[in-house]
Amino acid sequence: MAIAAVLLAIPIVALLWVPSYAKADPELFGFPFFFWYQFLWVFICSALTWTAYKLTLSARGKTTHEAGEER
């Protein structure tokens, strides 16, 4: 669970630390760094949240499982 908490905290800290990405270079496909970096975090955040979800599921075991629901 502690690991899940850390995984969830990572995108929050990264995106709130604005000075770390408020710059134009390096560009990617014509997008300044500021923009493509935040777009990139959409996918990183998704992956981290999914991992955290899987971790909480295994921590709880079978009691959270609804009949007929896919794992």
Binding site: F35, Q38, V42, T49, Y53, E66, E69
Partner: peptide, 25 residues
């Protein structure tokens, strides 16, 4: 329907933020 539905969706919904960013632009 279950407490985990929200968590599962929390993992796949951020993809919409991508399109939101394009709309902002």
């Amino acid at each position: 329907s279950s407490r985990n539905t929200i968590r599962r969706n929390a993992a796949i919904l951020p993809a919409y933020s991508f399109v939101l960013g394009l709309l902002a632009l």
